[in-house]
Amino acid sequence: MRPPRALRSVPLDERGVALVSFCGHCGTRPEPSALAAQPSRVCGHCGLGLVLHAGGDVAPRRDQPFLVVDATLSVCAVSAAAEELLGIDETQAVNKHIADFLVPADANAPSAEHLLTLLIEVAGGSGEPRTTVVRPRHEFGVRFRARIGSCGSPQAALLVLI
């Protein structure tokens, strides 16, 4: 006989979207019970990232490459998949400007769509999740669609390469 399913509260972001927890390094989504058992924010799966929260429509799936950028456009976290995809090392990338690694793929895009503007808006807590196209700096012909939304805490912009 299956045990009865228990109701649990689901935290929502300001847009009413369910918040999802994920590791800032491996992207694993911890179970709520595992989160409660782990008093620190350190991922219980890989131990190399902090557990962050983002809306379910923004949060990365496991092994999806992503970066976390703060309102000063400094890189705060690089997932393991993003390290592999972009050929960078998180320990070397943190505190550097995001433009050192990713730039808008279309330099002629309207300013509202500009990557940096989007990141600043989102990291400041305003703005719906957006999608734009980026490319690695110094590389041409390689493009990624990027989903940008808010994450935390503390509040920052989450850039998921899709």
Partner: peptide, 13 residues
């Protein structure tokens, strides 16, 4: 630093 960080790297830094 971990209490206010977004990643272990930034906390270490």
């Amino acid at each position: 630093a971990l209490r206010q960080g977004l990643s272990i790297s930034t906390a270490v830094s």
